[in-house]
Simulated assay, not measured.
Amino acid sequence: MATVEIITQNIQNLAIRQQQLERLIQQTEVHNEQLQMFLFDLTDYNQGLSVITDLVSEESTEQVDDIKVTAIEHVLSEQRKYLVEVIRLLEETLEEDMQPALLGQSSGGLRRILSSLKGLVEMNNYLSQDNRTFQRNYLSEQNIPVQKPKQNFLKRLFGKS
């Protein structure tokens, strides 16, 4: 019984982090195509987490704090930790065949979820690597000073306003 509770708690933690990433993605505005591609990949990954997070009630994820772009690595790291733990527990459950109807899923459904979770861990690793470049480019894009419109040639030449 403790295994089910641990799995459920990890899934709820994943769901909270999923909502935080979703809000961050919606609030982040970028103009560079490379930065947009990273956000699209992050969106795909975040939506992929629904494979497992949809299995828990949404009541537990109502109150989520906003995060900043600089916290993406931390969130991805935590999600990877939760995913690896859920994978380990699901594999143990399937090997022991203790509870074939875990999370309302048959053993075949759990195996499909397990395969999806392994793919999400791999995608998480790729996003963690790409995040370093994204952070560097995003922060430099945000620090670019706004250029003032240039005066026309005659105004600059004669100094009249």
Rank of each mutant, 00 (worst) to 15 (best):
I11N: 02
A71K: 05
L110I: 03
I67E: 06
E92N: 08
N32E: 13
S116K: 09
Q63E: 10
K118N: 15
E29G: 07
E78K: 10
L102P: 00
R136D: 12
M1K: 09
N13T: 07
K150A: 15
L90S: 01
S140Q: 15
M1T: 08
L120V: 02
E22T: 09
E85R: 14
R132D: 10
T43F: 10
I52H: 03
R132Q: 07
F158P: 02
E92A: 07
R88T: 14
I87D: 12
E5H: 04
F38S: 01
E96W: 00
Q20V: 10
Q26S: 14
L139A: 08
L89C: 03
N131H: 14
V75D: 03
A2P: 00
R88L: 11
K150W: 01
Q27I: 06
V4P: 00
N125D: 15
L90Y: 04
K68F: 09
Q26K: 15
F153V: 11
L21T: 04
S60F: 06
K155H: 10
L90C: 02
S57A: 13
L127H: 04
V75T: 12
D65L: 15
V121A: 07
L89F: 09
Q147W: 02
I11F: 03
F158S: 15
I87W: 09
R17F: 08
N13A: 12
S50C: 03
Q105H: 04
L35D: 02
T8K: 08
L139D: 05
L35Y: 03
L83P: 01
P100Q: 06
F134G: 01
E22S: 14
V121Y: 06
M1F: 06
A15T: 05
S116F: 07
I144T: 08
L139I: 08
L76V: 03
M98E: 07
E78H: 10
L103V: 05
R80P: 01
A71V: 01
N46C: 10
K81T: 06
V75S: 05
Q19A: 10
S128V: 02
